[in-house]
Design a protein around this nucleic acid. Structure first.
Lengths: 199, 199
DNA sequence: CGAGTCGTTGAACGGAATCAATCGTCGTGG
DNA sequence: CCACGACGATTGATTCCGTTCAACGACTCG
């Protein structure tokens, strides 16, 4: 993600922060002063509906950056919480913006990254337009799999994937089992292999 | 959107193209050479699932740009079709990239735009995580309404909004009627006023 | 004036959410 | 070091609500 770009910039080293489990790094509405990258563990980005239900927006794993979009926003637009103990690097927004002004190539690269993210988000949105849980899961797997090996190594909990797909986790398990039973996929633990590219 | 930025750049004027109804401007996989802005009518961005069903990604109205994400992509990732007769301005990718290199401020502004789009897409994704059709529609209206007047002037067909919200259009009409019946909103034609900010 | 599409409402069906219960595992603290 | 608690993974039964099919009026555009 952005993290390699961040480190290529000759700015002051990021502040390293340890976050305890369930501790929140920032909350929606907090003034946005930093962009983050996960060093250990993972960070969940969520929003809360007015009825108190949490909506999972994204899970940033080790090596990934998050809150990049906050670079041009005065405040954070979601909550960042660690559900396990995590370590993150905090880069100062000012520093980054300054670096962008110094070097147009870097600004351009950043723009390219955001573009890719836009496309990724569009793809996610596209997935949501698939009614059938089974088809939705299957398309997700197709998307995540490397095109040649047709294998997916799910990095996070199935439960979180369910949330990202907008499905109840029970439904996810069920349909995953059904797909396996029907010989469409095979899996051991968190490694899933796609056997048929059509459903 | 991007259109004002595009026009501020001192590059060769865009090529104006008239698109007939149902004609497609580009297809998924076509080499991406242009970024577009709608002058008249509107353009639908769609993808097709392998079962042939169309998934609506976005509707770009007059004054809006689209396919900005293609700036850093070799090919288009979706189809652009006009469902009514439309006129679009086509800006050459090369020109834009060149302008970005010339003027870092412009590149930065572009990056900012993409960031905002990321946040907007995240918001849409968040909407999709709301199960209840009624709550989903209500949150959508809250989001679209200007914060002070609490009024929404829907620019496109309700049918398209339904698609954007991931709902069958029948459900949308029904729940909209229910919301009105319950005194949560009032509407005349395409103008909707929110009467209660909670549901 | 006719075709096509949007807007609208009704009825029935189906599938995903929800509630519920169990097992395994991992981390933690006494 | 082990017991306990928390949470992920899994499967079953039931409920509910959104989709789908169907039908009709209104409106627009050719």
């Amino acid at each position: 993600m952005l993290i390699d770009l961040l480190d290529r910039l000759a700015l002051r080293p990021p502040e390293i922060r340890d976050v305890q489990a369930h501790e929140s790094l920032f909350r929606r509405g907090d003034p946005a002063r930093h962009i983050f990258a996960v060093e250990q563990g993972h960070i969940k980005l969520t929003r809360y509906l007015n009825d108190g239900r949490a909506v999972l927006l994204h899970v940033a794993g080790a090596g990934q950056s998050f809150a990049e979009a906050a670079l041009f926003s005065e405040v954070y637009h979601c909550h960042a919480v660690a559900d396990v103990k995590a370590r993150v690097a905090a880069y100062r927004k000012d520093d980054l913006l300054e670096a962008f002004r110094r070097d147009p190539a870097i600004a351009l690269e950043y723009a390219a990254r955001m573009s890719r993210q836009v496309q990724h988000l569009r793809t996610q949105l596209e997935l949501r337009n698939i009614q059938s849980a089974r088809e939705r899961i299957f398309q997700y797997l197709l998307q995540e799999a490397s095109p040649d090996s047709l294998q997916v190594d799910v990095p996070i909990a199935f439960k979180d994937i369910s949330a990202a797909l907008g499905l109840a986790h029970e439904t996810f398990y069920r349909e995953l089992a059904a797909l396996e039973r029907d010989g469409v996929i095979s899996r051991e633990d968190k490694k899933i292999r796609i056997l048929k590219t059509g459903i």
